[in-house]
Simulated assay, not measured.
Amino acid sequence: MYTYISKNNDPMYNLALEEYFVTDRKFAKENILFIFQNDNSIIVGRNQNVASEVNLEIANKDFVKIVRRNTGGGTVFHDLGNVNFSIIYPDHNNTAVSMFKNSLQPVIETLNKLGAPAEIRGKNDIVLNGKKISGNAMWKSGNRFLQHGTLLFNSNLDKIQKYLTGSKDKIKTKSVSSVKSNVTNINNEVSEKIDIENFKFKLLDQYLTKQEIKTIILDNQDQLNVEQIVKNKYSQNSWNLNKNSDFEFKFREYLENKGMVEIFLNINSNIITECKIYGDFLGFSGTKQLEEKMIGINFEHDELLTCLKKADIKGIFGPSFEPEDLLKILLN
């Protein structure tokens, strides 16, 4: 396994470097553990509607960077009290999703050894004393699979509530009083505080007990390639804010233990002419494929169901989703 600990706290740079590790042929055969921290930033899930998730006025006033990532899931706030880990590896046989929880075991074991009795809960969370300390998500590009997550050590939880609006439907369904109430910092829950830098190296040691590790050294060409990704993608409002045309029809529902789904459509003479899908669901392939398939079909039961059944619903939305879930949202 190869490892890299970023010394850069810019979210645009770190997300570009993460993408580079996934997509560049130089690393195509390698397993990589990438550890990084982002300062004063909001990281938006690939399929989310920024305007619905972020208090843009306050975030912009406070000079918070807003950056969209490649993976699904929800919007999160990052500061230097938060550490991020990315696990990247080849997935030629499409087995990575089934290995999702197993891949988190070194993280769990490291926390346990440092005195934090963390455990995996639900489809993508790590919890400590029943409260969330980490969310995880995934993305696949070609035969390369990315699984990454956050860990809250000393993060400013007040800013989570300040900047992230969350989904009222989701909060109501889950009986959560606020975005903040369901999360905690690791160092609020342990008797001996854990130093973030110490955790980083203990995590490397945990992997070292299982396999040989080598450190990635980025050359000048690597740096230029990453900077180009920042310039062309992560610094662009067209990617980060993803503004779209106005939609006449908006369908929205939170599916328990699956996620929030929003489907925006324009329809002319019962034919779908535009489609955009948002949500915090945890599929790894993105929504573009389905959005394009929806355009040009009749907005009626049989054609919608046929279209949905031809799409990779589990890849787009997550392994627990079925075509009928989306049909119900559209026809409810």
Rank of each mutant, 00 (worst) to 15 (best):
V127A: 11
N182M: 15
D325N: 13
N31D: 09
L114E: 03
V127E: 13
D62N: 12
K140I: 15
M99H: 11
N244W: 03
P117Y: 08
T71P: 10
K288R: 10
H92C: 10
A96N: 01
N143S: 11
S41P: 00
G115M: 03
L80D: 00
I186V: 15
F284M: 09
Y254I: 10
V230W: 14
L151A: 08
T110S: 10
L80R: 13
G45Y: 01
L15Q: 05
C275M: 09
Y254V: 10
L282R: 01
D219K: 15
N242L: 08
Y89E: 08
S155W: 03
V22Q: 06
D219S: 14
I271W: 09
N185K: 08
I217Y: 15
R46W: 11
G286N: 03
K123R: 14
A137K: 10
T75K: 00
L203H: 07
K140V: 13
V190S: 06
S238T: 00
D205C: 04
E324G: 04
N257R: 09
H78K: 08
I229G: 02
Q48H: 11
N185L: 02
E300V: 06
N220C: 08
H78P: 00
L33G: 01
E248D: 05
I313W: 04
N244Q: 13
E322G: 00
N40W: 08
L331M: 08
F321E: 01
N124F: 02
I194V: 06
L203G: 02
S245F: 15
Q221M: 01
F247A: 02
L282E: 05
W139P: 01
K101D: 11
Q161H: 12
N156E: 11
N38L: 01
E303N: 14
M294P: 01
V179N: 06
L157D: 05
E303A: 14
H301Q: 15
V97W: 03
Q206D: 04
I217Q: 15
I194Y: 11
D91Q: 09
G149D: 03
H301W: 02
L255I: 09
Y207E: 00
N93S: 12
T3F: 10
S134P: 07
